[in-house]
Design a protein around this nucleic acid. Structure first.
Length: 297
DNA sequence: CGCCTTTGACCCGCGC
DNA sequence: GCGCGGGTCAAAGGCG
């Protein structure tokens, strides 16, 4: 593993990674969630969150009771708490087929034995940790986002629990491992800073949520949380791929700028200048996703 | 009190 | 076969 140090070792070394076939949307929300279910990037990766998902909702999923009866897929509230200070977001989207070797129908990769043994545990349980003996680690669909941000952990509407951190070879920055807090959800994500550009955060998602937690009602109804989330995730986007990641045909890169509409983030201006070379598209996406009536959050 | 982060150890896959 | 690096676990501590 020497080729790393680029983006993500796997982004560059795994042949299974493919080019995200879609372009970049006009705004991050659309980019992530899509104006249409079928057109969202997330849906491309299977994150189209089926309305009939049966894994239940985690404690963090707060569906507006008023909307509970409606199509869940259309009405989902988000819960964003920690203020993030994303400044610029460059999305490197990739799609990968789940590269599984053994049971192809197995959807619970390392879920293995949540109770699996571990350090300080009698070796008798090592079997559990061995991930179901004979079963190779299953790679679920993954996609990564390269984000220029000051904060490592970007809010995406879901709640994550950090379960590990490792130093990355050839990189002064550690890589953090997060898992969706929904016990029935196996989605994981890794967050690490680029060793080449410390201001760039690489977030890699793996797997797909089987519950709702993010999304914006296209109808117009939006909760406080949603608005809050929207205001944070509402960037002015700039198309311009490029980035210095030589992923030729393996990466689909999009770049955008995140300018908190709420104005809570002060670096906004600085950022603006930082990327002044790109055609600023302001107006914040709030206009696109948040009904004017609820903009004042 | 419950949830989350930290942290060190362990396991696994892979390259040499 | 060995070593390295990545990924995961879970105990312990911290925080709201």
């Amino acid at each position: 593993m020497d080729g790393k140090e680029k983006v993500d070792p796997e982004l560059t070394t795994e042949s299974s990674w493919r080019v995200g076939g879609r372009g970049v949307s006009d705004n991050v929300n659309e980019f992530f969630f899509g104006s249409d279910r079928e057109s969202s990037i997330l849906s491309e990766f299977g994150w189209n969150i089926p309305a009939d998902s049966s894994c239940g909702f985690g404690d963090s999923d707060r569906i507006d009771s008023n909307l509970a009866g409606e199509s869940i897929s259309d009405y989902v509230s988000v819960s964003v708490s920690a203020p993030q200070r994303t400044t610029e977001l460059m999305a490197v989207v990739e799609k990968v087929e789940a590269s599984v070797s053994s049971s192809s129908s197995e959807d619970q990769p390392e879920k293995s034995t949540a109770s699996g043994g571990s350090s300080a545990k009698p070796p008798a349980e090592t079997a559990s940790k061995a991930r179901k003996k004979g079963q190779k680690r299953i790679r679920q669909p993954r996609f990564a986002f390269v984000t220029k941000s000051e904060v490592d952990h970007l809010e995406d509407g879901y709640r994550w629990r950090k379960y590990g951190q490792k130093a990355v070879k050839n990189s002064p920055f550690p890589r953090s491992y997060y898992r969706c807090t929904n016990s029935k959800c196996t989605v994981k994500k890794r967050v690490e800073r680029s060793s080449e550009d410390p201001s760039v955060v690489i977030t890699t998602y793996e797997g797909q949520h089987c519950h709702h937690s993010i999304g914006f009602p296209r109808g117009g109804i939006i909760s406080h949380d949603q608005a809050a989330f929207a205001s944070r995730l509402t960037p002015s986007i700039h198309y311009s791929a490029g980035l210095q990641y030589p992923q030729e045909n393996s990466l689909h890169i999009a770049q955008s700028q995140h300018v908190p509409a709420a104005g809570k983030i002060r670096e906004s201006h600085t950022v603006q200048e930082t990327i002044s070379s790109h055609p600023p598209v302001d107006q914040g996406l709030l206009g696109d996703i948040v009904p004017s009536g609820v903009r004042n959050v």
